[in-house]
Design a binder for these strands. Sequence first.
DNA 1: CTGAAAGCGCTTACAG
DNA 2: CTGAAAGCGCTTACAG
Lengths: 338, 338
Amino acid sequence: MVVRLADVAREAGVSPATASRVLNGSSRSPAEAIAEKVRRAAERLGYFPNAQAQALARSSAGLVGLIVHDIADPYFSSIAHGVQHGLHGSGLRVMLSSTDRDGETEMEAVRAFMSYRTEGIVLAGSRTVDGDEPLIAAVETYRKNGGKVIMIGQPLPGTLGLSVDNRGSATELVRQLVELGHRRFVILAGDMNLVTVKDRHAGFIEGLDEAGLSALAVLPGVFTRDGGLEVMTEYLDASGAEIAQGQICVLAANDVMALGALTAVRRAGLRVPQDVALAGFDDIATLEDMIPSITTVQLPLDSMGEQAALMLLGAEDAASVRVIDGTPVLRESTTFCP
Amino acid sequence: MVVRLADVAREAGVSPATASRVLNGSSRSPAEAIAEKVRRAAERLGYFPNAQAQALARSSAGLVGLIVHDIADPYFSSIAHGVQHGLHGSGLRVMLSSTDRDGETEMEAVRAFMSYRTEGIVLAGSRTVDGDEPLIAAVETYRKNGGKVIMIGQPLPGTLGLSVDNRGSATELVRQLVELGHRRFVILAGDMNLVTVKDRHAGFIEGLDEAGLSALAVLPGVFTRDGGLEVMTEYLDASGAEIAQGQICVLAANDVMALGALTAVRRAGLRVPQDVALAGFDDIATLEDMIPSITTVQLPLDSMGEQAALMLLGAEDAASVRVIDGTPVLRESTTFCP
DNA sequence: CTGAAAGCGCTTACAG
DNA sequence: CTGAAAGCGCTTACAG
């Protein structure tokens, strides 16, 4: 049914070896006349090389794996875009796994990427404070079998990757907010089992400490838009007195939570920033069209994806970790209203 | 280096055939005692099947291809999420290609997916009014070689897919806006070379016709957030007189353009909806947290991705096209202010 | 139930 | 420069 290299070779009157050499960039290329015959035959027959057979013969599949928590989350989709961009022209194809933050699915993805003999894996998304052992073990096995692992967020010791300075950036954000005049902070923390959340939280606390302040409340919850909405709604319901005393400033662990919180504040009939100031984290693309504009810590998401791709392509097999600093960007949502 | 099935077989003292049968679900399973020996050996050695070799032997790769215009665009990332969800548990892996709307990149993706012998391709994103021939030819070739093609948007005749009723939904949106009292419409069209844009535009016009109206202006541009920002900014600069005469209603060809336009309006010092009412199309996730909330035509993006995946998994090889209707959702951004 | 052998479609030393 | 042959790591009729 489907045409094979052997068919092309026969049609062109050459051996499969020769056909292979002209069709797939070999250093030793046959005479131009022959080559042309082969190309024509391939064209005429509609030949497409079987990548699986090539992978097996070359023992290299031309594939890289990309694991993200949730491809619909703008944080991850921006990174994914950057990865694609960085890989463009390399001849490598990406296999995607969006795990919905399910550990078992994540493991399956690593196993599959191992089976498909991907050249490397880009693993985006926070590690958890505990319970990552199985994943880490799988990743270790993968590396021992010759695969490259690029982690975005918290690279494992000895791995390549991008280490986001969540803690330092969070501290810096708080410093700037304090300088603006804010004193009454509420931390919308998200899932404290995520290392990213833990680090950002620690950074917030450190910033508060420096100013001799402590948080009015620390609200754990789910690390999503709906999580932000829900937790903020509950807080507002329970803390009318607190709010009545004057403007508070909510520090959300990421932008999507901040957006959920924004809606919660609004539904409660309160104003941002006059009643509730609000800051997020990540600077996802949609933030720029929000009214009011939302304060956040900017992370170069697209570029991070691209850097990860380039590390994968690069020759550096030594463990090398690049630190990514976040940049606080103060916008309307945290205007201080005494 | 890496352990093969033959190694496991030797370690377990059985033949490769037997090892294959116990490790990879065959109908005829060996005796439990033997099976257990094999499993143990595999475990001990850290065996991972070589998916490439399996694909070659089975002539089935367990892969599906997903082509989107821009994975960072929430429209496509939602669809991608749905596809992943729909495929979960099927054992199929997805290869992703985000093409940045480049025809050549799109072609490369189809060719690659052909080479990798993917079982099917989900192709999301609008076809263009002209110049799609090469892509269509490639897709045809793919189908002739036994691949399934699921198109989201405008399925090719004879293909499986989801046909979005862009035109009808657009007309319905205009009807409802007219009923609200709007009469002065501006169409923010986007790239008129995209079939989706053309259809939505035709639907808008039809709705206006029905009411005996015609658009104040039809503004072509780029089908992105920045496109919306730019085109709207230019229009506002040039049309102060128009605006001064009373509220206009901007119909954007999609949500990201509407968001860009929103920011343009705001930068011009005008109010939404009092000066400029605004409607988008798609109902991307971030819309729900906008202030004011944005009127749009809701499309079940995640579900569309999932349905596409299920069509791919399904047995239907007959061409079957499901029509997806959009639902106008009127929100604050189009409140009529006489 | 188990194994020997052929085959999946390529690539690539090795000869010529 | 070109080809015959072995090999990549599995699966699966076909025998036994």
